[in-house]
C-alpha cells in the first residue's frame, strides 16, 4: 500500500488531503495515469503536470522516477515559502 498526499490546490481539486492506494505503477507518471483514469477530479488535477511537483518519501523528485520501495508520494504546486 502506498500513501498519497495532496497539498494546496491539488488537495482542493481532488477533495482529499491523503489516501492509501494499492498500485503496481512503476513510475510517478504511471501512477498519475492510473489516478487520472479513476475520476474526472483526478483527471483535472493532473491535467498539466508542468504546474505540479512531486516528492517521494519527502524528497523532491521527478515524474519519471521509479516508485520501487517508495511508501509516500506527495503531489503539490510549486512551493511559495518565505
Amino acid at each position: 500500500m502506498m500513501q498519497i498526499l495532496y497539498f494546496a490546490w491539488v488537495r482542493e481539486r481532488i477533495g482529499l488531503p491523503r489516501e492509501e492506494v494499492e498500485t503496481s505503477a512503476a513510475t510517478v507518471s504511471d501512477l498519475i495515469n492510473e489516478l487520472r483514469a479513476r475520476e474526472a477530479r483526478y483527471d483535472m488535477a493532473f491535467a498539466d503536470t508542468s504546474a505540479l511537483r512531486v516528492a517521494l518519501d519527502q524528497e523532491l523528485s521527478e515524474f519519471d522516477a521509479s516508485l520501487k520501495g517508495v511508501r509516500e508520494v506527495a503531489f503539490f504546486p510549486p512551493m511559495t515559502g518565505g
Binding site: 494546496a8 516528492a55 503539490f76 512551493m79 515559502g81
Partner: peptide, 12 residues
C-alpha cells in the same frame, strides 16, 4: 531565503 522560497514545502 532564495532556497526556502521555492524548495521548502510551504504554500500561501
Amino acid at each position: 531565503m532564495d532556497y526556502l522560497k521555492s524548495r521548502a514545502p510551504f504554500w500561501k
